[in-house]
Amino acid sequence: MLEDTQGLHVVAQTPFAPDDTVDHDSIDTLTAFYHRHGAKGLLVLGVSGEAQTLTPDETVGVAAAYVAASNGRPVIAGVSSPNLALLAEVTAQVRAEGAAGVMISPPASVRTDEDLMAYFDAVFARIGDVPVVLQDFPASSGVKMSVPAMARLIGAFPQIAVVKEEDMPSARKVAALRATVPWPVRILTGNNGLYLPQELARGADGPMAGFSYPEMLSGVDRLMRFDNDVAGAHALFNRYLPLLKHEAQGAMGIALRKEVMRRRGALAHAAMRAPGGTLTAEDIAELDAILAHMDLPA
């Protein structure tokens, strides 16, 4: 189960080779890179993991490769889809490959609290007793879930063990959820880690985010939640902020993240599948200028 989920769970990239195939060798090096820099687990096939560009077979293959490379550490697979039959099929397949659970975001067709309950009632009727991360990301899903509606949902479906909170203002909603949603439900945060210190201060259990320097995310989490070193956490966060902000640019931000991780030896190629971002010479020059002023580790 996912009740012990806390600390950094990296939103993993899907690596591609120049010929547009999935680069499975780089899944191995990425997994080692993430865990070497403090990841307690991985979320694969998320929005920034380019899941929408994969075929169903590739989707299961990527999840299986990350599970194999993680050597028993938890891997959660994103399975969100407006097609419930496909969602259920992919859920069964990734679970068979060893995924610890799945992440689900409600589809854009959900408009009311009753729609929300009915949707997840249909989901769990199909997938059964599978541990679930509920993703609250209205900027992507188009669905606004209130705290009372989420609490009602979690009360009705104990399979929901984790909330990935990405609604804005995220720190305020983390606090509201922490005051409303009972333990042992965990709250992790996303939004590329942009508001991580504030979210941790309001009660988050760690980040579920991607960044080319995951050691910053795990370091801030450790300093805030275990060392009680708030000043040190903010100093570490601020050191990386220019690059963190630069990576928060949608598809182009993912391309930038991949390029930095390629330079760090975490993956062989920075390629994205269409319609993903492609870096121009000007984009590379801007990235070089930012990195030149930051004096970051290799």
Rank of each mutant, 00 (worst) to 15 (best):
L84D: 08
N191Y: 07
A175T: 06
A68W: 04
M168A: 13
P74W: 09
R186M: 01
R172C: 08
N83L: 14
I76T: 03
R95Y: 06
S70Q: 02
A68P: 05
R126K: 14
F124N: 04
D136H: 13
K173R: 13
L116K: 09
P197Y: 02
G98R: 15
P184K: 02
Q135M: 01
S140I: 12
S80M: 11
E166F: 00
E165H: 11
P182W: 09
G72R: 07
F157G: 02
S141N: 02
F157Q: 03
V130Y: 03
N192P: 00
F124S: 02
V110E: 08
V163F: 04
V60P: 09
V132S: 05
R152T: 09
R172Y: 12
Q135P: 03
S80G: 13
R95T: 02
L194V: 03
V132N: 05
I127E: 04
L188R: 03
V130R: 07
A125Q: 13
E165N: 08
V143I: 13
V185P: 09
N83K: 15
A63R: 14
D167K: 11
T180R: 14
R126T: 03
V130K: 07
K173G: 01
F120L: 00
S81K: 15
V62Q: 00
V123M: 06
V75F: 08
M103S: 10
L194Y: 08
V147I: 13
G128C: 06
D129T: 14
T91C: 09
P106Q: 10
I160K: 06
S70I: 00
V75K: 11
P182F: 06
I154T: 04
R111W: 12
V185S: 09
V75P: 10
I104A: 09
V94H: 14
M117A: 07
P148E: 07
A68G: 07
N191R: 10
V133C: 04
A176M: 14
P82M: 10
E166W: 03
V79G: 05
